[in-house]
């Protein structure tokens, strides 16, 4: 196991963070965030390193890393697309957004494209329900999404470089929702056919 190392500036940031808290272990989440930002993900070696810094076992660090969904235990794509799937977003068409990303990138939720550009994840409510459907791309929110906007956005992202501190949300105009009623044919339709369609699968 190669020992884990961070750039000096990041180590200084970690030490400053630890100094803010009455107890060292309390700095766990912010320190892990610094590690993930610098290394791209949190490796077992990084967990050992964090444990030493915080005066706790590597197992205690691993427990935290695996508990919180935003920490990556394996490398992810340059762009991490986290689409909200919870109720308000689903009601406004999140499924169509996720499906468009799946089709365009040829990956399922949880997977990364072979070229390492994109990771797709379905996530729970991101507190952006009034501008649903939405997704978080790295640390930035994109709100009022439509499949067409996904097309344009994926093209734009492919040609650009992530900026770690770019967090200002992109809030598109609310789309024309005239077709809203037709967006949810699946369950009601199936209810009318008595589940026959599902059975046929």
């Amino acid at each position: 196991m190669t020992p884990f190392a961070l750039p000096e500036s990041a180590v200084a940031e970690v030490d400053r963070t630890i100094a803010l808290y009455p107890e060292r272990q309390a700095a766990m989440l912010p320190v892990l965030w610094t590690v993930q930002r610098e290394a791209g993900w949190i490796s077992p070696e990084a967990m050992v390193w964090v444990g030493e810094r915080l005066g706790c076992s590597a197992a205690a660090v691993q427990a935290v890393v695996t508990f919180y969904t935003m920490f990556d235990e394996r490398p992810v794509g340059r762009w991490k697309l986290q689409v909200c799937r919870t109720l308000s977003c689903e009601l406004m068409g999140a499924r169509a957004v996720i499906d468009r990303i799946r089709e365009r990138l040829g990956i399922e939720p949880g997977e990364t494209t072979e070229d390492g550009e994109f990771t797709l994840q379905e996530v729970e409510c991101l507190a952006s329900c009034g501008t649903a459907p939405m997704m978080q791309c790295n640390l930035k929110f994109y709100e009022n999404l439509t499949p067409e906007r996904i097309d344009a956005l994926l093209d734009e992202l492919r040609g650009s470089t992530p900026r770690p501190f770019d967090v200002e949300p992109v809030i598109y105009e609310r789309p024309d929702l005239d077709g809203y009623r037709a967006m949810f044919p699946r369950t009601l339709e199936r209810a009318r056919t008595g589940g026959a369609e599902a059975e046929a699968k």
């Binding site: 799937r85 919870t86 109720l87 689903e90 009601l91 729970e124 409510c125 809203y180 009623r181 967006m183 949810f184 699946r186 369950t187 009601l188 209810a191």
Partner: peptide
């Protein structure tokens, strides 16, 4: 236009 079953499944998953 949505079924209550869909809503409950969404929340149960959450």
């Amino acid at each position: 236009n949505v079924s209550a079953v869909d809503c409950l499944l969404n929340l149960a998953h959450f």
